Amino acid sequence: MARTLLITGASSGIGAATARAAAKAGWNVALLARSQDKLSDLAGELGDCALALPCDVTDRDAVAKAVADTVARFGGLDAVFANAGKGVEHPGVENGRPDEWHDMIHLNVMAVLYTAHAALPHLRKAKGQFIVTGSKAGRDHMKGSIYSATKWFIHGFAGNLAEEMREWGGRCTVISPGMVNTEFFDEEKPTKLQPKDVADAVVFALEQPDTSCVREIHLMPND
Results as ranks from 00 to 15, higher is better:
residue 4 T to F: 09
residue 37 D to I: 07
residue 207 E to L: 10
residue 51 L to H: 04
residue 2 A to T: 14
residue 64 A to K: 11
residue 143 K to W: 11
residue 56 D to L: 04
residue 38 K to W: 05
residue 168 W to N: 06
residue 188 E to N: 13
residue 186 D to S: 13
residue 18 T to K: 09
residue 110 M to S: 13
residue 73 R to D: 01
residue 120 L to V: 14
residue 150 T to Q: 02
residue 202 V to P: 09
residue 13 G to Q: 05
residue 83 N to R: 04
residue 162 A to L: 02
residue 61 D to A: 15
residue 66 A to F: 04
residue 33 A to G: 05
residue 36 Q to S: 15
residue 149 A to F: 01
residue 19 A to C: 12
residue 55 C to S: 14
residue 26 G to R: 11
residue 103 D to P: 00
residue 75 G to L: 10
residue 62 A to V: 04
residue 187 E to P: 00
residue 161 L to A: 09
residue 40 S to N: 15
residue 67 V to Q: 08
residue 154 I to R: 06
residue 14 I to Q: 02
residue 151 K to D: 06
residue 158 A to V: 10
residue 50 A to K: 07
residue 162 A to P: 00
residue 89 E to W: 04
residue 144 G to F: 05
residue 112 V to P: 02
residue 212 S to Y: 11
residue 52 A to K: 02
residue 5 L to D: 09
residue 75 G to H: 10
residue 119 A to V: 09
residue 182 T to D: 06
residue 181 N to T: 07
residue 140 D to S: 13
residue 178 G to K: 00
residue 11 S to F: 07
residue 214 V to H: 05
residue 215 R to S: 14
residue 178 G to T: 00
residue 192 K to R: 14
residue 64 A to T: 13
residue 185 F to T: 10
residue 65 K to Y: 00
residue 56 D to C: 08
residue 39 L to E: 08
residue 192 K to F: 13
residue 47 G to S: 03
residue 208 Q to W: 01
residue 158 A to K: 08
residue 178 G to P: 01
residue 8 T to D: 04
residue 181 N to I: 03
residue 68 A to V: 02
residue 163 E to G: 10
residue 95 N to F: 04
residue 184 F to E: 04
residue 179 M to G: 02
residue 212 S to D: 07
residue 126 A to T: 12
residue 63 V to P: 01
